[in-house]
């Protein structure tokens, strides 16, 4: 099957995650803070009766955190240890593999991060591919 990515924005940077692992995209709903958790853990939400953890992707990827806006979204992904959400500035579109060319990361990037897997480059766009499981890896033992 054709690979597709959900592409979203943090500041001016675009990222994409495999559409297969995205369960839903939610508007911002009230989040309950989790005390004594890692700094980027935003808290938990009530996602249709299931208590689901949410992280602030800005903090996780080293951006400054901002107040939420009309466009802020929570992307809910289905991961190895259950569903979890991450907050993004804006969710743009779904991009198909035919529209882009996949290029490997630079060696330096590869060393710096575990969650980036490749760069996707199209005529009008450029985005980094994220492996969402890696984003949540550390909070388990935080």
């Amino acid at each position: 099957m054709e690979q597709k990515w959900v592409v979203f924005q943090l500041e001016e940077n675009a990222y994409g995650i495999d559409v297969q692992s995205v369960r839903s995209i939610e508007r911002v709903i009230p989040i309950t803070r989790i005390p004594n958790a890692a700094s980027y853990v935003k808290g938990v939400i009530n996602l249709r009766g299931v208590v689901t953890p949410v992280i602030d992707l800005r903090t996780r990827l080293g951006f400054d955190s901002i107040e939420e806006t009309e466009e802020t979204r929570i992307i809910i992904a289905t991961l190895e240890h259950g569903d979890a959400g991450f907050i993004v500035d804006r969710a743009n579109e779904v991009v198909e593999a035919t529209d882009v060319r996949i290029e490997p990361l630079t060696d330096q990037k590869q060393e710096e991060t575990t969650y980036l897997t490749a760069i996707a480059k199209g005529e009008e766009q450029l985005f980094s591919l994220l492996e969402p499981n890696r984003l949540f890896e550390e909070i388990i033992h935080a």
Binding site: I34, N36, V51, T52, G82, A84
Partner: peptide, 17 residues
């Protein structure tokens, strides 16, 4: 349950809606 991602948070045994 808080789920495996948040297991072991100090002095929190779970959540409720």
């Amino acid at each position: 349950p808080l789920g495996s991602y948040l297991e072991g948070i100090r002095a929190i045994s779970g959540a409720t809606i």
